[in-house]
Simulated scan of single mutants.
Amino acid sequence: MFERFTTDARAIVVAAQETAREIGSHNIDSRYLLLGLFDTNDSTTQALNDCVDNFDDARTRLLDRLAGSGLDGDALASLGIDLSEVTERADAVFGSGALTSSRSPKGRIRFSQDAKKCLELALREAIRLKGSSIGTRHILLGMLRAECPARSELLRENVDVAALRSTLETQRAA
């Protein structure tokens, strides 16, 4: 399937892999693909940017959530523990990235089921839109169609999924 990806779409997958490795994740879920989309500079990213308030802040918040994903900030907060304060203190005492750097994965990082589903749906979107290749807009359309963490992140940012989907469907191939 990857042979059908455009150069930009492949760059998203590579960026997802690199970010997962940097963070120390043992798998790549759809949120890593979303981060790759945030870092692309094309009409798909522009459409996403138009739908997200404070686009750069949204990317940073997502990256922060992924970097701290081994600890559940909401669960800790319910116990009166501020995860960001704990992270800051750990970094001050043990060095930057103390809570995340020790879990760096070795070897190949695998795609989670939800990331695979997004990429499968990207193929289906490309076929539906009569495209000969899978582009960045198809990946985002696949995310919008799937029930996945990336879609949840977009909803968390108050993205109007129907409006974004409509914009992407009327775009020229990206």
Results as ranks from 00 to 15, higher is better:
residue 93 V to C: 07
residue 84 S to N: 13
residue 61 R to Y: 12
residue 139 I to L: 10
residue 16 A to M: 07
residue 88 E to Y: 11
residue 108 R to V: 10
residue 134 I to S: 03
residue 59 R to D: 05
residue 44 T to A: 06
residue 9 A to F: 06
residue 77 A to E: 14
residue 154 L to H: 00
residue 136 T to L: 01
residue 72 D to K: 11
residue 84 S to R: 12
residue 115 A to F: 08
residue 126 A to D: 08
residue 65 R to Q: 12
residue 5 F to T: 01
residue 73 G to E: 08
residue 2 F to R: 14
residue 134 I to F: 05
residue 155 L to G: 08
residue 53 D to L: 10
residue 4 R to D: 12
residue 97 G to N: 06
residue 125 E to M: 08
residue 13 V to P: 02
residue 89 R to P: 12
residue 60 T to E: 13
residue 69 S to M: 03
residue 36 G to H: 01
residue 7 T to F: 15
residue 127 I to A: 08
residue 131 G to V: 03
residue 132 S to P: 03
residue 120 E to D: 15
residue 54 N to C: 09
residue 55 F to G: 01
residue 144 L to F: 00
residue 66 L to K: 08
residue 77 A to G: 09
residue 54 N to E: 14
residue 31 R to H: 07
residue 106 K to S: 15
residue 170 T to R: 05
residue 155 L to K: 13
residue 171 Q to R: 03
residue 4 R to P: 04
residue 46 Q to I: 07
residue 82 D to Y: 14
residue 20 A to V: 06
residue 67 A to I: 11
residue 55 F to R: 01
residue 171 Q to S: 04
residue 28 I to P: 02
residue 82 D to S: 15
residue 140 L to C: 08
residue 63 L to C: 04
residue 7 T to K: 15
residue 78 S to M: 14
residue 96 S to F: 14
residue 125 E to D: 09
residue 106 K to G: 14
residue 6 T to I: 06
residue 26 H to S: 13
residue 121 L to Q: 07
residue 33 L to G: 00
residue 36 G to R: 02
residue 108 R to Q: 11
residue 135 G to K: 03
residue 4 R to Q: 11
residue 174 A to C: 15
residue 56 D to V: 12
residue 148 C to P: 00
residue 114 D to K: 03
residue 6 T to N: 04
residue 159 V to S: 02
residue 123 L to R: 10
residue 2 F to G: 11
residue 174 A to H: 04
residue 97 G to A: 09
residue 159 V to K: 01
residue 170 T to L: 02
residue 33 L to V: 01
residue 43 S to A: 15
residue 10 R to F: 10
residue 112 S to A: 14
residue 165 R to A: 09
residue 157 E to N: 13
residue 33 L to R: 00
residue 134 I to A: 04
residue 3 E to Q: 13
residue 124 R to L: 11
residue 18 E to N: 11
residue 58 A to P: 01
residue 129 L to F: 04
residue 41 N to F: 06
residue 94 F to P: 06
residue 50 D to I: 05
residue 65 R to T: 09
residue 43 S to L: 07
residue 39 D to N: 12
residue 59 R to E: 07
residue 63 L to M: 09
residue 157 E to D: 14
residue 123 L to C: 08
residue 172 R to Q: 08
residue 94 F to V: 11
residue 76 L to S: 07
residue 130 K to M: 04
residue 14 V to K: 12
residue 161 V to N: 04
residue 139 I to V: 12
residue 172 R to K: 10
residue 15 A to Y: 05
residue 25 S to T: 07
residue 62 L to S: 02
residue 41 N to H: 14
residue 137 R to N: 12
residue 138 H to Y: 06
residue 39 D to A: 10
residue 2 F to C: 10
residue 166 S to W: 00
residue 136 T to S: 11
residue 164 L to K: 00
